[in-house]
């Protein structure tokens, strides 16, 4: 079992929507291995969404959170935490709820320790002033691999372990959030926001709105939004989609021409007390905030299969269509090389 050391900086930054509007965010940035003298250069470089945290069951994860402060809001000295949402049998010290344990002050570090017990799709987010910090962007994906996971062996490249029927060739997280333009504008203008006025102007997958969702990973026009939401596969590939919702609304996602099979829910295989297989099919996946779903399909004939939110009024950017929670599944005729990692 491996020891995984990862370091996240908490800071602020800016994201861009397809209509050209820029929004102030708070978020995390990966500073693993960055020399101490260079860490300060990551201030203001928050990412939406936050870096992927990935570990195997049995690994020991030391996740260091460093509070880099907000260069865009020097008057604010908010603390931060990491909450591994869904971690079973957690103790408060590593649970990241400031009211019930500790938070990390500006300029300080804290080491969270996790030894994942159950494989599946989780999420992490800051739990300090959560209504503000989550909407502002302090959200990220988290994958716990089964103990026997081996990406080089097809039978062991699974979501839930060998023999669970969750072998996959490619995997993508589909991370759903929304962006309330006024909340972000108020933040940069140092004004109080009445959160009961929350309304989403932009609907995001992996931190981007359509058509930016289908741009490649690391597209230079989106320096703070590194993750593509375009799903690629070869015909016949088993594809695993890891849905996470860290917005404040429920969403209903459909892929035109591709029914879905739900193989995992909230980082658990749906099984009864006697091991009954309770997995099921869905045409439209209905996901509430704080939930994750592991959904599988076999890539069909080559083509482009639109992915969209069946709450169709959410397929807009600030009221203008097309936009919002739209992406696509691009199926190739066997010409794609093997996938080097999630969402790659």
């Amino acid at each position: 079992m491996a020891i995984i050391e990862q370091r996240l900086g908490a800071t602020d930054g800016w994201v861009k929507m397809p209509d050209g509007n820029l929004f102030y965010i708070m978020g995390f940035v990966d500073i693993t291995g960055v020399p101490e003298t260079a860490v300060v250069s990551y201030r203001g470089k928050a990412r939406l969404i936050a870096p992927l945290v990935e570990a195997k069951v049995g690994d020991e994860v030391y996740l260091t959170l460093t509070n880099l402060g907000f260069p865009g809001r020097p008057d604010l000295d908010d603390s931060h935490t990491v909450h591994w949402h869904g971690f079973p049998n957690q103790i408060p010290l590593y649970d990241g709820v400031p009211e019930a344990s500790v938070a990390v002050r500006v300029g300080r570090d804290f080491d969270y320790y996790y030894k994942p017990l159950d494989p599946g799709t989780y999420m992490y987010h800051c739990h300090f002033e959560p209504v503000e910090h989550i909407q502002m962007g302090m959200v990220g994906p988290l994958i716990a691999r089964p103990r026997d996971y081996d990406p080089g062996v097809p039978a062991l490249k699974t979501a839930y372990g060998s023999g669970t029927g969750t072998e996959f060739a490619r995997e993508y997280f589909v991370f759903l959030t929304e962006l309330d333009a006024r909340a972000h504008e108020f933040m940069v203008l140092v004004q109080e926001y009445d959160w009961s006025e929350y309304r989403a102007d932009y609907y995001l997958i992996n931190g981007r709105a359509y058509p930016d969702t289908v741009k490649d990973n690391g597209d230079p026009s989106l320096p703070s939004q590194p993750f593509s939401a375009r799903i690629k596969a070869n015909t016949g590939d088993r594809v695993l989609l890891r849905f996470v919702n860290l917005g404040y609304q429920q969403h209903a996602i459909e892929i035109v021409g591709i029914p879905l099979h739900v193989a995992g829910v909230d980082a658990q295989r749906p099984v009864g007390l006697n091991g009954e297989d309770l997995s099921y099919g869905k045409n439209v996946l209905y996901v509430a905030p704080g939930q994750t779903y592991d959904v599988m399909f076999t890539a069909p004939a080559p083509g482009t299969y639109p992915l969209y939110n069946r709450n169709c009024h959410k397929n807009m950017n600030a009221g203008v269509a097309p936009g919002g929670m739209v992406s696509e599944v691009a199926v190739h005729p066997g010409t794609l090389p093997p996938q080097p990692g999630p969402n790659a």
Partner: peptide, 8 residues
Amino acid sequence: DLSYKRFT
């Protein structure tokens, strides 16, 4: 048995 586990 149809019971199942959720975190939300």
